[in-house]
């Protein structure tokens, strides 16, 4: 089920929550960012940091749905930094530099008809995070890690 916290086996220093992002389910896209917002709010994280993190998570989720048939999202919070890790086993991003350019998109027309695929996802994620790394191998998948400092 999308958005439901997956059971956590072992716990490290930071508080972690995992969400399964269901591929091709536009209705559920956004539920991980919604659940994360709720979590961060319950911990007393300031609204501005929640806003930035939620944009990162939301755009990342949408990307996983559009391009990678879903994946897994994890949020970790240690009291100072929100770390979001989004991992999928989709087609990968051959040229991250190019993908970060505003307006660049490989989304299909069908996706664009739904109002997505404007090429603003990755740039938005970059803009709203303090750090972002893209680890991608063509044909194997992508892992994006973003941090937002509180």
């Amino acid at each position: 089920m999308t958005g439901a916290p997956a059971p956590e086996g072992r716990r490290s220093e930071a508080l972690k929550e995992r969400y399964i992002v269901d591929g091709d389910d536009f209705q559920a896209a956004g539920s991980a960012s919604s659940a994360m917002k709720k979590l961060l709010r319950s911990l007393g994280v300031p609204p501005e940091a929640i806003r930035r993190a939620a944009i990162c998570m939301y755009e990342g989720e949408i990307n996983m749905v559009i391009h990678a048939n879903g994946g897994e999202a994890e949020v970790a919070f240690d009291g100072e930094t929100i770390t979001m890790t989004l991992a999928d086993s989709g087609p990968g991003i051959p040229d991250p530099e190019l993908a970060l350019r505003e307006g660049w998109s490989t989304a299909t027309d069908a996706i664009r008809d739904l109002g997505f695929g404007a090429g603003m996802g990755l740039p938005n994620m970059k803009r709203n995070s303090d750090e972002m790394t893209i680890d991608s191998t063509a044909g194997q998948g992508t892992t994006i890690t973003m941090t937002v400092r509180v």
């Binding site: 319950s42 911990l43 007393g44 994280v45």
Partner: peptide
């Protein structure tokens, strides 16, 4: 908010 102190909330 679970606690006004963030580490207590965590």
């Amino acid at each position: 908010v679970l606690d006004s102190d963030m580490s207590a909330a965590i």
